[in-house]
Design a protein around this nucleic acid. Structure first.
Length: 152
DNA sequence: GCCAACGTTGGC
DNA sequence: GCCAACGTTGGC
């Protein structure tokens, strides 16, 4: 069982939006970065858990927990010319982009802010707080997972 | 295969 | 809204 972190802009799709979906489940589509794609396609498994992180907002930070309920499968939004994330180079016979299904587990009792995460010496190696990191999906080691949850 | 130009991310 | 960081694209 592995742990992850998913970034999303709350104005676009926040944790409340996920919780409002049927079954509180949705696919995590639209990732168009190879490194993030590889995590989803090759490593994520049903039963893994992830932090839900709000980015590009007044107070960026971790707001909740999700569970991966379906491992990586082709991101069909890449095939749809009408879709914002359409990619003509992704072929249904040889998909370039993948997604997973995630289910809402719970909100955190409070937002654990990015500023706070950056402040903790024990979280120094967390990819999220590393300079210049722009991955929208990233792994979180079990040690970091526990350390972050302890801040709640 | 190099690298400049360009687009995107995302904190502030 | 600004801009630093970084990934991708495409000319050569």
């Amino acid at each position: 069982m592995a742990y992850w972190l998913f970034k999303s802009e709350p104005d676009v799709f926040g944790i409340d939006d996920l919780a409002a979906q049927p079954d509180q489940t949705d696919h995590w589509d639209g990732v168009r970065n190879y490194q993030a794609r590889n995590f989803m396609r090759d490593q994520m498994a049903a039963g893994d858990q992830g932090f839900f992180y709000h980015s590009n907002t007044k107070e960026p930070g971790i707001v909740g927990i999700v569970e991966i309920v379906r491992a990586g499968y082709p991101d069909h939004t890449a095939f749809d010319p009408e879709d914002l994330h359409y990619d003509p180079k992704s072929d249904p016979d040889n998909p370039r982009w993948y997604m997973v299904d995630v289910r809402f587990v719970r909100r955190l009792a409070r937002t654990i802010t990015l500023a706070e995460l950056k402040d903790r010496p024990e979280l120094e190696g967390l990819p999220l707080v590393r300079k210049g990191n722009r991955l929208s999906v990233m792994p979180v080691s079990p040690e970091y997972w526990s350390a972050i949850l302890a801040l709640e």
